[in-house]
Design a protein around this nucleic acid. Structure first.
Lengths: 175, 175
DNA sequence: GAATTCATGTAAGATGTTACATGATTAG
DNA sequence: CTAATCATGTAACATCTTACATGAATTC
């Protein structure tokens, strides 16, 4: 149930945010680590309110509801961050396909690998653009967000390197 | 719908495998890139059969059903591998928590980072053990499986390095 | 006054997890 | 004969995606 905690965390950091604000926050800050859709978000806000982990602290124009975290919510959030075992990352679409590249013609396989490397380059550029577009401050979300950005850079670089290496290995196999 | 294609791929490589065989194969070869549970697997085998992408080629003892891929299934598999755009990896439980480490006491945050590094070490060792336990041949699954193993090694190393770096950055912030 | 942004919600369907349920065959 | 392994399936529930639906406030 990490979406729940992602929301809880954002509300803890940005007190008084609305569902709409949180949706934007997801797009700019959590998009790379925990994407969420609008419908998921509003649904979860309702459940969190019902569970007493957050509450509506203010109602504004256009039905706007500003949320704040409750003491109970903060307790649950902190407990989750440090005490709940993390679930290791899994499910990697492109790696899954690599497993089956023996089934396609070598030229097609090389094309696939090249496409992955190109896509990684684009994503690295998107990340840089996002980094440039964000108004970084010295709030927690900025500070830790920058650390996570660096992770993204290293991740893309490592993957691109591996794809280049694996493509060469595959070429060698064909000979 | 990648589970569908993972199954299709395994059946293409290991003709005549049963649901049970495929489950074991998932555990040893696809576990790190695409985990699946037993119930998901049997359900999907039924759907794939109904869709005409695979078929029961033999029935054995204890109700065992051996599956084979159909021409249609092979077509769908190849189309998926090279033509369907890959979905980028996302959702990273530990990175999500890093985002919120500003909310916990510095000592607890350092503990969290240390625990992640330790967990990565254990997973690297598990991977090495798995690699040693597998009877590697020169079949496609072995050849490409080894490439993916190398990816796992690099991935764990990169993550451990980043966690160490980020932990130091965080220490510097506290001063 | 028209377009954009702000703002919230519901519904249907796909996918994934956990637990339950059953029984045949083989190895020791 | 007993335990482990082989073998398949269902049910309930949680989670995620895509699409639909509506309307107020602001900006140009």
């Amino acid at each position: 149930m990490s979406l729940r905690h992602a929301l809880l965390g954002l509300i803890a950091e940005q007190d008084g945010a609305s569902g709409y604000d949180l949706l934007k926050l997801f797009e700019v800050s959590l998009a790379t680590v925990w994407p969420a859709t609008q419908s998921q978000l509003y649904g979860e806000l309702g459940k969190l309110t019902e569970a007493g982990l957050i509450r509506v602290v203010e109602e504004g124009p256009r039905g706007r509801k500003a949320y704040g975290i409750t003491e109970e919510g903060r307790g649950e959030l902190l407990r989750w961050i440090v005490d709940v075992p993390v679930k290791p990352v899994r499910r990697d679409d492109s790696l899954l396909r690599v497993f089956f590249l023996g089934l396609v013609e070598p030229a097609k396989a090389q094309e696939f690998m090249a496409a992955q490397i190109a896509a990684l380059g684009r994503r690295r550029d998107d990340l840089a653009a996002l980094e440039g577009a964000i108004d970084w401050g010295d709030d927690d979300l900025s500070v830790y967000g920058r650390l996570v950005m660096e992770y993204g850079r290293r991740m893309y670089a490592m993957r691109a390197e591996w794809f280049r290496w694996a493509a060469e290995e595959m070429k060698a196999l064909d000979r």
